[in-house]
Nucleic acid binder design. Structure first.
Length: 587
DNA sequence: GCCGTTTTCGGCCCGACTGTTTTCAGTCG
């Protein structure tokens, strides 16, 4: 069973508890949801964690749930879960994926109309709604029947599972909406928040906070957005619209003197906020988007900035990328937050594909080396590493490869003589073949300063084989960086499986670095693994993998991954000055 | 059911919005 499947199962147990007796099982419900979150966010498979006796290290997994999961892995079922779910038709659970359907509503409809087929329950319910049978039900009415049809129709179009947006796409969309929002005079300040502000690798909804003294006017302006499909809801503080493509935009407003608490609230994450509020409660403080209430006092203290809001709880301001409830609140309380790496710390980009005729087996760059260098200069870099793919092995003899790379070496030396500002480094992106061998021989490698190794073929090997393959490739003395370590492509394919404990250990021992590939559909190594690696002391290089000059601007997305992994400047090797970087490269 | 720099027992975030109600239940973030 995959982690996703286990998380779904735990959420279904929580739903079953909710149906049985929400009040009585209130805390079990929260516990199971929290456990589901933990497993979904885990970088290791439950099966492996059980074997290593580490499952209870996940936050929210204690003795009971660990035992249940052990039973699940061993026997494929859990007696206790069956007991909780006893009497609840299986057809309740698929309905939970439909927007606006929770456990109570799903169960009531399934029970009332005896919907027994989990596979067709959604279409069956749609038919019943169309036959006008729901409106007369107690607790329902004509409007809710209509809403159910709307929700099912949008679900079928894919709203619920619409692919999350990659960051630049979400960013661009947010900028369009932001520009529109600002056309209202009532808007004093407006910011995109939520997962976009935290720079999560993919974004679902887009959230906005607006500071205004005229909330009604701002809400009205927002729901009049010309590209909206429909208004989901609209109140005095918040509103939500759906725009074409099934994307949801949420808005919250506050007066300027309470804008700080709104920024904090709407940036999230949900888990960070819950933990923050629990932390504050111990100090007899109650937090909300309105501000802070002291125990026994009815008045709310307002905060116009986030810094003041966090300070009032006794905390240092926490960078949005860290707000994922991974221990940042405790560190902020001790004023021990790490100073995260910043874009301006980056001194060079080492994964650059020019159009130099290297005759590779994979894609070439579109611009000349000179163009790429000019771009590097404009970005203020001190060095740039060319790392085109190795010459195709099937189309060349090894002596042909040697002469191609020798000519390229001469070219790079010329560039270094003619270019004053940016030092050029002679690298290569080198395939690790299925056997673990690298694609070109030692003689050809002798004309290269160092190589970035990566996997571009035979993705379907199992975890053990793939780990062995990568470690063997990385063992080559010239290999210093492992590029896009998981091979994932967001919204397209999962990465191959690797034993990252082993990879991390190997890198530390042998002075190798992992890449954070900044290309927005890669963002690879993923932030959760960067977090684990940084804790252990693995070093990183942040690269754009650019095939055109404009792509070199994507560096900021790689930096955001590093920041989400709590990397400081000293964890990132390409923040080093040229001499020190090259010293590492050749070590 | 989980958890601990006030606790191994006694807590567990906080509020908005909608539809169906006549004070609230359900869902969402």
């Amino acid at each position: 069973m995959t982690n996703t499947e286990i998380a779904t199962l735990l959420r279904n147990v929580a739903a079953a508890y909710t149906i049985k007796d929400e009040r009585k099982f209130r805390f079990q419900i929260i516990a199971y949801q929290k456990a589901a979150d933990a497993i979904e966010n885990s970088t290791s498979e439950v099966k492996d964690l059980l074997l290593e006796n580490k499952l209870e290290l996940l936050p929210g997994i204690g003795h009971s749930i660990r035992q249940h999961l052990e039973e699940l892995i061993k026997t494929g079922k859990v007696k206790h879960f069956n007991w909780v779910m006893d009497g609840i038709p299986a057809s309740v659970f698929p309905l939970l994926d439909v927007p606006s359907f929770g456990p109570k509503k799903a169960h009531k409809l399934v029970a009332e109309f005896k919907l027994k087929d989990p596979k067709n329950v959604i279409s069956d319910l749609e038919k019943i709604a169309k036959q006008n049978k729901i409106a007369s039900l107690e607790g329902f009415g004509a409007k809710s029947q209509e809403d159910i049809l709307q929700a099912i129709s949008e679900y079928k179009k894919g709203r619920a599972k619409t692919k999350r947006m990659v960051l630049p796409y979400a960013s661009e969309l947010a900028q369009k909406v932001l520009a529109y929002l600002k056309t209202s005079n009532a808007v004093i300040q407006a910011h995109p928040l939520g997962s976009l502000r935290r720079m999560v690798s993919t974004v679902g909804d887009i959230d906005f906070a607006v500071a205004t003294n005229f909330p009604d006017e701002v809400i009205k302006h927002f729901i009049d957005y010309p590209y909206k499909d429909r208004v989901i809801e609209q109140g005095s503080q918040t509103a939500s619209i759906l725009i074409s493509g099934g994307k949801q935009i949420d808005l919250m407003v506050q007066p300027p003197d309470a804008f700080g608490s709104l920024l904090q609230h709407f940036t999230g994450s949900k888990r960070h906020n819950i933990h923050l509020r629990e932390f504050a409660l111990k100090k007899r403080l109650s937090l909300s988007e309105y501000g802070i209430k002291k125990a026994k006092h009815k008045t709310i203290q307002k905060y116009d900035t986030e810094e003041k809001f966090y300070k009032a709880i006794g905390l240092a301001w926490i960078p949005p990328e860290m707000r994922e409830d991974k221990g940042e609140i405790e560190l902020a309380a001790q004023n021990k937050l790490p100073k995260l790496v910043e874009l301006k710390d980056i001194m060079g980009d080492l994964h650059i594909h020019s159009n130099y005729p290297i005759e590779p087996s994979h894609d070439m760059g579109k611009n000349t080396m000179e163009d790429m260098l000019k771009k590097a200069e404009s970005l203020g870099y001190n060095y740039l590493g060319f790392s085109e793919h190795n010459p195709s092995v099937s189309k060349h003899t090894s002596s042909q490869i040697y002469s191609i790379l020798s000519r390229r070496k001469d070219k790079i030396e010329q560039l270094n003589e003619s270019n004053k500002y940016v030092r050029v480094i002679n690298l290569l992106e080198l395939d690790i073949l299925a056997s673990g061998k690298v694609a070109i021989d030692e003689k050809s490698l002798s004309v290269i300063d160092a190589v970035i190794v990566s996997i571009h073929s035979n993705f379907s090997m199992n975890k053990e084989e793939m780990t062995k393959r990568v470690l063997e490739g990385l063992s080559n003395p010239k290999a210093k960086i492992l590029a896009h370590p998981t091979g994932r492509l967001l919204n397209q394919r999962a990465g191959y499986e690797l034993d990252f404990d082993k990879i991390f250990e190997f890198c530390i021992k042998n002075n190798k670095a992992l890449e954070i590939n900044a290309w927005p559909t890669r963002l690879d190594l993923p932030d959760s693994l960067v977090f684990e690696a940084i804790k252990k002391g693995v070093k990183f290089v942040i690269n754009t993998d650019s095939h055109s000059t404009w792509q070199m601007d994507m560096m900021k997305y790689g930096v955001s991954v590093a920041r989400r992994g709590w990397a400081t400047k000293s964890d990132i090797l390409n923040s080093l000055p040229y001499n020190e970087f090259v010293k590492w490269l050749k070590s």
